[in-house]
Write a protein that binds this DNA or RNA. Sequence first.
DNA 1: GCCGTTTTCGGCCCGACTGTTTTCAGTCG
Length: 460
Amino acid sequence: MDNNEIARLLSETADLMEIAGEDPFRIRSYRNAAAVIEAHPEPLESLAEQPGRSFTEIPGIGKGLAAALAEILARGSFERRDEMLEKYPPTVLPMLRLQGVGPKTLRALIEHFHISTMDDLERICAEQRLRTLPRMGAKLEEKILRSIQQFRQSAGRFTLDFASGVVQELQQYLGEAVPAGSFRRGKETVGDIDLLVTGAEPAAVLERFAAYPAVKEVLAKGENKASVRVGFEGIQVDLRVLPAESFGAALQYFTGSKEHNVSLRTRAAHRELTLNEYGLFRLGSGERVAGETEEGIYEALGLAWIPPELRENSGEIEAAAAGALPRLVERSDIRGDLHMHTRESDGRATLEEMAEAARELGYEYIAITDHSKSLAMANGLDEKRAVEFARRVREYNRRNGAVHVFAGLECDIKRDGSMDLSEDALAELDFVVGSVHSYMNIDPREMTDRLLRALESPSL
DNA sequence: GCCGTTTTCGGCCCGACTGTTTTCAGTCG
Ligand SMILES: Nc1nc2c(ncn2[C@H]2C[C@H](O)[C@@H](COP(=O)(O)OP(=O)(O)OP(=O)(O)O)O2)c(=O)[nH]1
Ligand SMILES: [Mg+2]
Ligand SMILES: [Mg+2]
């Protein structure tokens, strides 16, 4: 079983434990273990095979979880999971993802109506029977019905690129709004868009936000924050408004991650301080210690400022305390790009346009690596065209100095591991990338042999 | 469940919004 599957078992068990009303801190440990294992580079299967090693060497895994992990590897499940599955079928789990349905509500629904699927829940709400339960009414029935609709049509998470378009439009509309959350942390995908506004009259900003033309639904709107669904895709946008003097604390809070925040706030508490989105305060006197800037907050906690991309509670706080944070790669560090296409195969720009774009990005060099002939649908190059194109690249280099262009090729690796073009032709080029575009689903051993054989090509 | 700046036992983040709540639980950020 691979790490992702193991993590899923732990995470699902945590969800079931939450429905069962178990200790929240124990549940947190299971969730944390799932996250740690999902991010762990080494397969637990191979760790388990090595004598003298133990799962407890992974932070967040103690004796209890190590035993559960051993059990999972041995038989595909573990005791507490089986115990939970006796109480609740796994089909209840998707209902926990519904907005407005938490573990308490779900447990009450399961116990009173004996529901086991989202379809069951939909029926209960449509028949207006939810309101017969204490603390549940018509509003919740409607909210759940909307949530079910949303769940069925939503893509779940969105690419950073898509979110970035929505952010820009909202920034234009709102004037000043700073992106926070997973967007600021630069995650590949975001669950929603989190925007921060400081120093403005909250009521006015939230009013304007809710009136944004693309808003499809206002999920919540209070004195300090609001949440809406926007556009055809229905992406959620959360807007928080805070005073100007709280900018640093607000940005820190809203950037997260949640786990990073919890760690930071625990650290504050150990220092007789309390941290929230308004600032860092002394416990007791309430005296303000920091809050205008993020740097000020981290500094007052004995930490170097931590780049948002690292704020995942995976060791960055310890590194910041030790002054051992890594220097992150910046765009300005990128000197060139060795995988590019042009119209010669399936790209959209010419060699000249690509070189000019690279110059504008401040690159020193690029390699044009168009496809080879096997990729016929991309109009891949045969030997003759590849050599001719290389000649054009060199001609270009003679006439233009700013960016050096390497004459390259993205050469198909055939099923037997041989290269798509002859070695004679490849030898004429500066740079050859090997790619698998066919027979992707062959046996892993055969695939490995194929790649090893390809690596024997002197040009690759 | 885990973990150790006080700790091998006792903590484990803190605040906003909604609803049928009449004093706060549940959910969510
Ligand atoms: N202190 C604290 N902050 C939280 C909590 N939940 C969320 N936050 C903060 C940190 C999050 O990064 C930020 C935005 O919340 P989101 O739910 O949108 O999460 P985030 O953007 O990190 O991930 P996402 O891609 O939206 O799933 O709010 C919490 O339980 N406690
Ligand atoms: Mg978010
Ligand atoms: Mg959010």
